[in-house]
């Protein structure tokens, strides 16, 4: 096999060859919890780093912390596709990044908020409301032709709910991306 992109390799490259790259793969989803200085351009630096190294961000949330000079970025990355070790080392090189934790799934509580706008007319409405109740969802808006349901939970739960309401006619869906906090007394 030839090295990718070498000007000396005349032969066309197969898709497998193009996809093959180095680095350790963990094969699972990773939730990275990152403390950053609350300065302009920080998010661009993080997003730019991911883009440049060819890493794909699955979800990304940014919010304030109890310290107004510090923000928290929570992002999820697929460890089957990317070498997480390289991801975190490269992130550490950003001067505005203060701390990174690659959260252990078993020691972490993760939540995502989603809003589903579903078409629901007549008899369908009752059934939909029942499903929402099972998922501990909240109906936050009702019109003659549609219902908006708010659901909070893990990504799996959100996706399960989506599967349930899709047959009713999912008009649109808004998801926040995951936030995560470590279990127990110690700080994330």
């Amino acid at each position: 096999m030839s090295v990718m992109g070498e000007p000396g390799t005349k032969e066309p490259l197969s898709l497998e060859e193009l996809q093959a790259s180095t680095g350790l793969r963990t094969g699972r989803k990773h939730v990275l919890s990152i403390l950053v200085e609350n300065k302009s351009g920080v998010l661009t630096r993080i997003a730019g780093l991911f883009a440049r190294r060819g890493f794909n961000i699955d979800t990304l949330t940014v919010g304030p912390t109890d310290d107004e000079q510090i923000s928290r970025v929570t992002l999820t990355v697929d460890g089957a596709l990317h070498p997480i070790d390289q991801v975190t080392k490269q992130l550490h090189k950003l001067i505005n990044v203060l701390k990174i934790r690659d959260l252990e799934p078993s020691d972490t509580v993760t939540r995502e908020l989603a809003l589903f706008k579903v078409s629901a007319e007549g008899a369908q409405r009752g059934e939909l409301m029942q499903i929402a109740e099972i998922f501990r969802g909240k109906v936050v808006d009702v019109t003659k032709r549609s219902v908006i349901v708010e659901v909070t939970g893990t990504t799996e739960k959100i996706e399960a709910f989506e599967g349930m309401v899709r047959p009713f006619g999912l008009i649109e869906m808004m998801r926040t991306g995951e936030i995560a906090i470590s279990r127990g007394r110690s700080e994330t």
Binding site: S40, G41, T44, R45, G48, R52, K93, L94, I95
Partner: peptide, 16 residues
């Protein structure tokens, strides 16, 4: 300038 150079600097400052 800041945006263009983000991938190729060790760090950068935009004076505000």
């Amino acid at each position: 300038t800041l945006g263009i150079t983000i991938p190729i600097v060790k760090h950068s400052f935009m004076i505000q």
